[in-house]
């Protein structure tokens, strides 16, 4: 153990008290700042850097606003058109529906596929991340971490090909079995489609695609668990698993939520793999094993865009706007969840 005398870490309240009167001063504990004037060159460099940082920071806001404005402006013709105009003007627009009635099922399909992907990927990623961070011998952990990162480098079109040509045929018997044994649950209502170009297959492929990002972030978060907290648990007589439950998972909880949201973001916007696997349909169906029930927004845009007329493009952009809104909402919800537990997070 370090034998040098250590200063007590200021509690949150103390930090706040220090920070309140002079929010722009340096880190608490630096001691009083001597009022020595800096060298003029250094002052200029400091100003330049702070300007550069501010500009870089603002860029993100400007970009976000620009995207939102673009989406609304270009979607406007479709948003303001009547259902009849849409039906007449666009060859593939379903008859007798409003724009909302068109977007709704795709939004549902998008969220459904992503939720399946998260439900599969989060537990698996957490397991892999915990194995790498707390169970595996060091060399094995490094190799495994490297392999996981490699998974992230595979292009999504390759995942799509793999899903269609290799995974789907192998999943078909499993899906058939599911529909036979658990068919009484609406989710698994048969008959299971063959070939299984269904939303559950898509969900599995998406899960594999988002696995690396969730695992990588979760691993980093778990590795940052303060050793003090781990030792506190062990010293109370916790087994390794109990220590993980007492110290590692609570500490990593908010990081795990962020990791999941990153994964969800990718799953929501994923285009190629869905386009190649899913047999599309526009219903609010919970039947995960039936084909021709679901479609996602991104896949639909990719599918229809090349041959769309101006009103069609505007309609597709309107669906893109819906995707943008839902992604924003998901991220804000995640932040709200994380913030709600802030008092109890490891941050203070």
């Amino acid at each position: 153990m370090s034998n040098s005398p250590q200063l007590a870490r200021p509690t949150a309240a103390e930090t706040a008290a220090v920070a309140a009167p002079a929010p722009s001063s340096g880190a608490p504990g630096d001691g009083p700042r001597t009022p020595v004037r800096g060298h003029p060159h250094r002052d200029r460099a400091g100003r330049a850097f702070s300007t550069a940082a501010t500009v870089a920071g603002s860029t993100i806001l400007v970009t976000l606003a620009a995207v939102a404005v673009f989406l609304v402006l270009r979607a406007w013709p479709a948003l303001s058109a009547s259902p009849e105009e849409l039906t007449e003007g666009i060859q593939w627009f379903p008859e007798g529906t409003t724009l909302l009635g068109f977007v709704g099922p795709m939004l549902f399909g998008t969220v459904l596929a992503s939720v399946i992907a998260l439900a599969v990927a989060v537990p698996v990623s957490t397991g892999i991340a915990l194995f790498i961070s707390h169970y595996a011998p060091r060399r094995m952990a490094n190799a495994l971490g490297y392999l996981i990162d490699l998974l992230a480098a595979i292009p999504s079109v390759v995942y799509g090909l793999w899903g269609v040509a290799w995974l789907a045929p192998r999943l078909q018997p499993a899906w058939a079995w599911l529909s036979e044994t658990l068919g009484f649950i609406p989710l698994f209502e048969g008959p299971a489609a063959n070939p299984p170009r269904v939303i559950l297959t898509v969900g599995i492929v998406l899960a594999v695609m988002i696995l690396p990002i969730i695992t990588a972030v979760a691993r980093e978060v778990f590795l940052q668990t303060p050793r003090l907290h781990e030792e506190a648990a062990l010293a109370l007589g916790a087994t390794r698993w109990e220590m993980i439950r007492m110290a590692v998972l609570p500490f990593g909880q908010s990081g795990l939520i962020s990791a999941s949201m990153l994964g969800l973001g990718r799953a929501l916007g994923e285009t190629m793999a869905v386009l190649m696997i899913l047999s599309p349909g526009l219903t609010y169906s919970l039947a995960l094993l039936q084909a021709g029930q679901h479609q996602t927004i991104a896949a639909n845009i990719a599918n229809q865009f090349p041959e769309a007329n101006p009103l069609g493009v505007s309609t597709l952009i309107a669906t893109g706007l819906a995707l943008f809104v839902i992604t924003l909402a998901v991220n804000m919800a995640a932040r709200w969840v994380v913030a709600r537990r802030k008092d109890f997070s490891g941050a203070n």
């Binding site: 030792e231 506190a232 062990l234 609570p250 537990r341 997070s345």
Partner: peptide
């Protein structure tokens, strides 16, 4: 460790509890 308790150099209550 259940018989022999330990208190560490730096206070380490579980922050999430």
């Amino acid at each position: 460790r259940r018989q022999v308790g330990m208190v560490f150099q730096r206070p380490n209550p579980f922050p999430t509890m």
